[in-house]
């Protein structure tokens, strides 16, 4: 019994370790002090500051645009890659698709920076999108592949057997059954893109900011509880997003896990 209690205590500590820092961030977003690290009474001041911070709002807008474009493209590429790998038992493609996951972010960041500079591509939204697509494909491919692996291969054969052409078999059977996986993969790609800092840092150039880049600058240069406020809002919106997905399309979340 004592051992069991110790196990639960250790688990509780781990949960605390995961949550306490975030609770502190949220708490200090309501702190009247100018320093992000000291409590000095309740205020909503920092949320007002945030609402009028045009640079921050613009950065957030950029982040959403990039994440939408990147996750959309990565969903298409990743799904194609998963389908091709399964159907043709390819060897090289899955290696190439998964390789970005086991190479350090920083290498991807600097190598894309060098690549764009050598090609005279102006760094900006487009270069960030391309960079994000390249690391998001892997996430979609993994989720869709696992969904494919769980699919009974005789389903498509049954469709063919009962008179469906290869195309019809794909549209009527494979795609609908894969849809939760594709959606989950796309969502995962979206969150990975909107969250990315390192690769964006190297490929955004001087003129373009995304939300993580803006937060980084604030942390490095002049930290105020506005960072806490934007963090809190970000967390709240992610939570709302995920909860609404779990209500609307619970299968999509299952595919993600």
């Amino acid at each position: 019994m004592a051992r069991r209690a110790a196990l639960y205590a250790a688990a509780l500590v781990a949960y605390a370790f995961l949550y306490v820092p975030l609770v502190i961030v949220v708490l200090f977003s309501f702190s009247a002090s100018h320093l992000g690290t000291r409590w000095a009474g309740f205020t909503l001041h920092w949320y007002r500051v945030l609402l009028h911070d045009a640079a921050m709002l613009h950065a957030a807008w950029n982040s959403v645009i990039i994440a939408l474009a990147a996750s959309l493209a990565a969903t298409v590429f990743g799904t194609l890659a998963a389908l091709a790998t399964r159907k043709y038992r390819l060897r090289f493609l899955p290696v190439l698709v998964l390789a970005p996951l086991s190479t350090p972010d920083i290498l991807q960041g600097v190598s894309l920076l060098v690549f764009f500079v050598l090609l005279n591509v102006t760094l900006g939204l487009k270069s960030v999108m391309l960079a994000h697509i390249s690391f998001c494909i892997a996430y979609v491919a993994i989720v869709v592949s696992s969904r494919l692996a769980g699919m009974d291969p005789s389903l498509v054969e049954a469709a063919r057997d009962l008179g469906a052409s290869p195309w019809k078999g794909f549209w009527l059977i494979t795609l609908p059954l894969l849809a939760p996986g594709i959606m989950a993969g796309g969502l995962l790609a979206f969150t990975m893109s909107i969250d990315d800092f390192v690769i964006t840092f190297f490929t955004a150039g001087a003129g373009t900011t995304t939300l993580p880049l803006r937060i980084y600058t604030m942390i490095k240069v002049a930290v105020t509880p506005e960072v806490n406020a934007v963090s809190t809002l970000l967390m709240a919106s992610t939570l709302v997003l995920v909860l609404s997905i779990s209500k609307l399309a619970p299968q999509a979340l299952k595919g993600m896990g």
Binding site: P21, L22, I24, P212, I219, L234, M235, T238, L239
Partner: peptide, 22 residues
């Protein structure tokens, strides 16, 4: 769930916790 919060925010949290004024 904590994983859904931004990567930099998770690092920033430790800036607050470990800061000299904390």
């Amino acid at each position: 769930v904590p994983f859904w919060s931004n990567f930099l925010i998770r690092i920033y949290a430790w800036m607050i916790i470990l800061g000299p004024q904390a």
